[in-house]
Design a binder for these strands. Structure first.
Lengths: 164, 164
DNA sequence: CACAATTCAGTTGTGCACAACTAAATAGCC
DNA sequence: GGCTATTTAGTTGTGCACAACTGAATTGTG
């Protein structure tokens, strides 16, 4: 916090500060985004994850819970209650697929479709809030996606018994 | 997902894709980090937020809940139950301050102090998992902190009635 | 001293993330 | 057909984030 430059870089001790930085900064940024979205989405009555679900539905039309989860990297444990809330808010309907009864199709109601009109202003405000231009955003996004895929790979390898 | 370059950049419609990208990428990276930490910290019996608390305590010694929250940007609603869990795990003690009875001092137990020995290996594994070198990490961190502070400022302005 | 405002930890309630599990439906194989 | 394995939503339980509130202690002011 007060001494940005760590001494004796070879020492494991000092790593106990460094390491937390990148993931901590990342989480702080993620939560800061969440805060901005919270304020902006309040008008629409959506949380940020709900907004993401609506984005996918506006783009893809109807789709099963499974596909939705793949788009957003969320499992049914997260999506099921979230979708129930969207349903009781009157924005989506959930119906068992006729051709595969295991699957549940999620589709927009008229109200859900109509909400798009009001949501269309959100992105510009978000981009403005970042203070970045589109190029910078693109660069940062690229770095982050790269980082995510490296981390995913590493997590898999760790899980497979590489004790470090 | 499939068409990285959006057409007709002037259209508000297309922003409904773009915007989600940066924050989505950010959250994805944040969750990916969480996944790696989950695997690595399992041995220590800590979650990632608990690990962050321990990092601060290892660095700062004892300190009141309030200060802890300032370091980690967390409020008592998050910290109180978390600290209870750390306490029942035998890693910390919580005691009302003698000089100010509103304040609760959090301090390490012997066991909590001893855990540092085993935690000292975590950072290196995390850094390795990112696939980045320390310079790249520093650069990314700087960008993210900048972004966070821009977002915090914007959230404040939004909240103060700037209807966008 | 008395009184209002502030500070601090804690509680409650809502919502998300994820692991582990259940139950039902489907697919593949004999 | 009968069997197992897989797929798919859903449920349960744990933990975190945060808003709103409570209650106790402290501070500031007269």
């Amino acid at each position: 916090m007060s001494t940005p430059a760590a001494a004796a870089p070879g020492s494991e001790e000092n790593w106990l500060r460094l390491d937390s930085q990148i993931c901590f900064s990342l989480q702080a940024a993620s939560r800061a985004f969440n805060g901005v979205y919270r304020v902006i989405l309040k008008d629409l009555g959506l949380t940020y994850p709900q907004y993401l679900v609506m984005l996918v539905l506006w783009e893809e039309g109807e789709l099963p819970v499974k596909k939705l989860g793949e788009h957003l990297r969320l499992d049914s444990g997260t999506l099921s209650p979230l979708l129930k809330r969207l349903e009781s808010a009157g924005l989506v309907r959930r119906e068992r697929s006729a051709r595969d009864e295991r699957s549940v199709e999620v589709r927009l109601t008229e109200e859900g479709t109509a909400l798009r009109e009001r949501a269309v202003r959100v992105p510009r405000r978000i981009v403005a809030a970042t203070g970045l231009d589109l190029r910078e955003i693109g660069e940062l996004r690229e770095r982050l996606d790269q980082l995510t895929s490296a981390l995913d790979t590493a997590a898999l390898e760790e899980e497979l018994g590489d004790g470090g």
